[in-house]
């Protein structure tokens, strides 16, 4: 894992976007909204931004960056000529993307701590675990999508048809209860909803309800994604 070279510039890139959303919407929109769920809007937004930032970072890394290494730079092919196998390569990518998304999450967490956007500092430490889990879940799914991609354009579909709707439906910007019933049901199957269901109470100073369910959902997402990635990439490269 000597890929850390690129970590700093890409962290800055990954950080700027969610941070602008959080502070811009939080302060700007927050003026008009007043309090949401009993806290200032910025505080409400913090947990959503955290999960969103981790998801974005993991997705970009396993889609664009992994695709470059697999398809354009042929790094994976080069590694497969050594004693390492495809499973090793994918495991390496998973660990790398997860760790990188954790760094993005950590950056947001520092802002949350710095601005005091929490009720109970002790509980916010649990957010670290949520960040790792969320990074893992989206890295797994991302690698599976990567295995299917014929070119970079393919990832646009993933972002416009999956990531963006999920950001809007999973409670990043407002509580999912604000949605009509059928959309609320739909939101329940989205992985980001589970990440936020864990992160938001922790920011607001409560222990998450149904924590086990949400943790399990994210774990299943990551594991199923990774398994699919393994099968699909094998079919793609080793035939």
């Amino acid at each position: 894992m000597v890929w850390r070279k690129l970590a700093v510039p890409s962290i800055l890139g990954n950080l700027a976007d969610p941070l602008l959303y959080m502070l811009g919407l939080g302060y700007g929109l927050g003026q008009f909204l007043g309090e949401v769920q009993g806290v200032p809007y910025l505080t409400f937004l913090a947990a959503g931004t955290l999960a969103y930032s981790v998801m974005n970072s993991a997705s970009f890394e396993t889609l664009y960056s992994a695709f470059s290494r697999m398809h354009v730079q042929k790094t994976w092919d080069a590694i497969l000529n050594t004693p390492l196998t495809l499973a090793d390569v994918l495991l390496g990518e998973l660990a790398w993307a997860t760790s990188k998304s954790v760094l993005s999450g950590l950056a947001i967490l520092l802002v949350i701590w710095g601005l005091g956007l929490y009720a109970d500092f002790g509980l916010t430490l649990w957010l670290l675990a949520v960040v790792v889990l969320t990074g893992f879940a989206f890295s797994g799914v991302g690698l599976a999508v990567n295995a299917l991609a014929p070119n970079y354009d393919f990832f646009m579909y993933y972002f416009t048809l999956f990531i963006t709707p999920m950001v809007l439906l999973s409670g990043v910007f407002y509580p999912t209860e604000a949605l009509p019933g059928w959309l609320q049901t739909a939101a329940q199957v989205l992985p980001l909803t589970h990440a936020i269901a864990l992160a938001r109470p922790l920011v607001l100073g409560e222990w998450p309800a149904q924590a086990v369910l949400h943790v399990a959902a994210l774990l299943v997402c990551g594991l199923a994604g990774f398994y699919a990635a393994l099968v699909l990439t094998r079919r793609r490269l080793l035939r």
């Binding site: 070279k5 690129l6 730079q73 042929k74 000529n81 050594t82 004693p83 196998t85």
Partner: peptide
């Protein structure tokens, strides 16, 4: 995998790492 430990491969396509 074990056999490849003692094999060197020069692939047809350039697969060097451009960031390094």
């Amino acid at each position: 995998a074990a056999a490849r430990q003692r094999v060197g491969v020069v692939p047809q396509a350039d697969s060097l790492d451009p960031d390094f």
